[in-house]
Design a protein around this nucleic acid. Structure first.
Lengths: 231, 231
DNA sequence: GGCTGTGAAAGCTTTCACAGCT
DNA sequence: AGCTGTGAAAGCTTTCACAGCC
């Protein structure tokens, strides 16, 4: 083979990069709203709270979407990142556990400028069932499998108490949902090939407490994690 | 200097380790509740959803708290991790933005088995002020500085809309709060030495969507991020 | 002249595999 | 015999610094 076939976009984007693409996307959308046409890596990086070398390296994994001497075209980059993240299609989301948090999520309209649609709300409490939350009727958890099938749910959100979370996760997986966002404070066991992400308030507070304590007693030492979110 | 002074606990725990200590702590507390006295790295690791080499390496940064041939004493390790995380003292937390999410957090009682106390709830909406949420009277945001001082708040939680978040963060910092947990979908700018952690629903969903799309079209390739939460 | 894209270096994290203690 | 604690290897992420293009 003499001339390499044109394969500019390398499948296999580093996980650390994937985790930052949504942040870049948000910064770009806000630039777009303000009518900005192009942006340099320096400016976009600063809007996203990272340094420009990291931003350029990250974007280079998607392809060569910038212009040397100029920068990145905002709209074009918004589209490329959206496509890479799979936001050009709509993902149906089901939320299980309609307590305070479930309700908060259901009502949280701005799902990162589209890409997601809340398709169903489920709860185990019979008193909850039938209530209208965010323009959806809460259904009983017994209907999980049926709802997943009929609504084409591919992402499950778990906002139940910890004790119920594993059971819900298992039912999601058996119903064919292989992306789960877990707010319950437990470690979920799922088969290989299922992607679980966890959001945990008390873990975040504990990490903050660790650093706060360092600042307080260690003193003099530079706080290790500070300044991560830019100055 | 001939004999090294005994400094077994190395200050400077890797950030990746710090982020896992709360998970180990939770697993240990659940073992404690069940009356388990000792646990091997293998069993604790599996309860925490990590592998045992990682767990042992992590714990080795705190000190040598295990017994070869036996394992770790559950209660002792709970205490050591709690102390390392700064949970032997009580941290006063203020929540700003008492919408659905703020209320959900205020009512979320089980703050990782203590270490934190919700000391104040603040909101900009006059209709909100005075309402009683989770046994606290919601106060107006104008009182932020006064509340931080009088209640000794050291951790600020921001659950406002994105547009207000930066202003609140700045006021927190100026009032002397240097640990912030941000739920608003914006990148906060804070001075060096201030620790900001971010929790962002739509970012998590977007990362899930990325992997889901990979599984769907890439097909045949092993899903990169799957299996992270153990099988 | 300005700014992207990228090899190479540096730093950090995970995993291996086993010495060392009980 | 069993299980921890840890050097060393492997893998991943960030940062540097500059060649290459506009």
């Amino acid at each position: 083979m003499i001339s390499r076939p044109p394969r500019p976009r390398d499948r296999g984007i580093p996980e650390a990069t994937v985790a930052r693409l949504p942040i870049y996307l948000r910064a770009l959308q806000s630039l777009e709203d303000r009518g900005t046409l192009t942006v340099s890596s320096e400016d976009l990086a600063s809007a996203a709270g990272v340094n420009s070398a990291k931003l350029r390296k990250d974007l280079s994994h998607l392809g060569s979407y910038g212009t040397r001497g100029v920068g990145y075209e905002v709209q074009y980059l918004v589209y490329q990142i959206s496509r890479e993240l799979g936001l050009t299609q709509d993902w149906a989301v089901a939320i299980v556990g309609i307590g305070n948090l479930g309700r908060a999520l259901a009502n949280y309209g701005g799902f990162g400028t589209r890409g997601f649609r809340i398709a169903a709300l489920l709860d185990a409490d019979p008193d909850m069932v039938g209530q209208n939350v965010a323009s959806l009727d809460v259904r009983h958890i017994d209907n999980l499998e049926e709802v997943v099938r009929s609504k084409g749910v591919s992402i499950g959100v778990i906002t139940t108490p910890g004790a119920s979370a594993q059971g819900v996760a298992t039912r999601f997986v058996e119903a064919g949902v292989s992306s789960i966002l877990n707010f319950a404070p437990v470690v979920l066991s799922v088969p290989d090939g299922v992607d679980v992400r966890k959001v945990d308030l008390s873990i975040e507070l504990q990490i903050l407490a660790f650093h706060a304590q360092r600042r307080a007693d260690g003193d003099g030492r530079a706080p290790e994690r500070a300044g991560l979110e830019l100055t």
